[in-house]
């Protein structure tokens, strides 16, 4: 048994003169939620379509659970595309049954599982409604059910929360986490960085057809740390402190001064080789420290920084 559910190695995909994927390699560990990030048109959808065998790579290999990706794996993948919809004039139940059967479930099996999921999401009474009678969010729920219905090992969600109100988005988020806990591996592509922070164990960043970043969320953040600390001090002369800080070789990053009563807040960047304790010790000598916290870059910051660096 492979450790990674999915292993893409040196994948190329070209459309005519345009290269959509340029030597992309990705490893997606079993049981993880993997954030596939990148600007619009970076090549995420091309990669996802290759995983779904909608298109095929021009070069490179893709292993699914240690085996070369083959048509038989389609039944083990659930895909919720970004551009998604349903047959407008078909009834909900009929349509869900049809899509489930296309994934290889028998009719009775499909019915059983659909009943379970429809009850779970409390949408059982929609069974005989036509899609055109439902709202967009309702239709999205049905698409979600159809994606996860056949208990796939790999779930691919492309912008799963678009079209949901916050309550339903939360509901879906909990379902995704529950599926992960039950052993599913999830590829999650989105532009909503806060949900990446919340859900993902690993991320990869694709820009202009190239993978520019990959790793666990923690590692990536560590790699992008700026050694900047947010501190709050009490009973201190700002001007004296500032010159002292500079003379110690620390840098006051951004002009982020903030005085709350007797308290003075600022952010200080220290050289990479300096340990944070040194800064703390230095500050403690000058005043009483009421707040000391490392400023960890958000995924949003990392995204912007990495893409800008790569484009430059």
């Amino acid at each position: 048994m492979a450790e990674n559910l999915l292993e893409a190695t040196n994948v190329y995909k070209r459309y005519g003169d345009y290269t959509a994927l340029n030597n992309v390699s990705l490893s997606i560990p079993k049981g993880s939620i993997f954030g596939l990030l990148g600007p619009n048109g970076a090549g995420k959808t091309s990669f996802i379509r290759i995983l779904n065998q909608i298109t095929y790579p021009d070069e490179g290999t893709i292993l699914f659970n240690g085996e070369a990706l083959a048509p038989k794996h389609i039944a083990k993948i659930g895909y919720l595309p970004e551009e998604r919809g349903l047959y407008k004039s078909m009834k909900v139940g009929e349509q869900a049954l049809y899509l489930a059967q296309l994934k290889g479930l028998s009719k009775t099996e499909a019915k059983e599982k659909l009943t379970y999921w429809f009850d779970r999401l409390e949408i059982g009474h929609w069974w005989n409604k036509k899609i055109q009678e439902l709202s967009k969010g309702m239709a999205q729920k049905i698409q979600f059910v159809v994606t996860v219905l056949h208990n796939p090992d790999l779930l691919i969600f492309d912008e799963p929360f678009s079209g949901f109100d916050p309550i339903n988005a939360n509901l879906i988020k909990d379902e995704i986490l529950r599926l992960k806990n039950q052993g599913a591996t999830v590829i999650f592509s989105t532009h909503r960085m806060e949900s990446v922070e919340e859900l993902c164990d690993e991320i990869a960043l694709i820009n202009k057809s190239n993978k520019i970043l990959e790793g666990t969320l923690v590692d990536v953040k560590r790699k992008f740390r700026t050694h900047t600390y947010e501190v709050a001090l009490e009973g201190v002369n700002e001007t004296i402190l500032m010159s002292d800080v500079e003379s110690r070789g620390f840098k006051i990053a951004d002009a982020d001064f903030d005085t709350l009563g007797d308290e003075f807040t600022c952010t200080i960047q220290i050289p990479q080789e300096t340990a944070p304790n040194e800064l703390l010790r230095f500050l403690m000598e000058k005043s009483s420290v009421t707040h000391f916290k490392e400023l960890i870059p958000s995924v949003n910051d990392i995204f912007i920084k990495a893409v800008n660096n790569h484009n430059a």
Partner: peptide
């Protein structure tokens, strides 16, 4: 055309060969 405008096409061809 209907399947294209409904945007169901990608869901279907992720299970069925075009």
């Amino acid at each position: 055309i209907e399947e294209k405008t409904n945007r169901i096409i990608e869901i279907i061809i992720s299970s069925v060969k075009p």
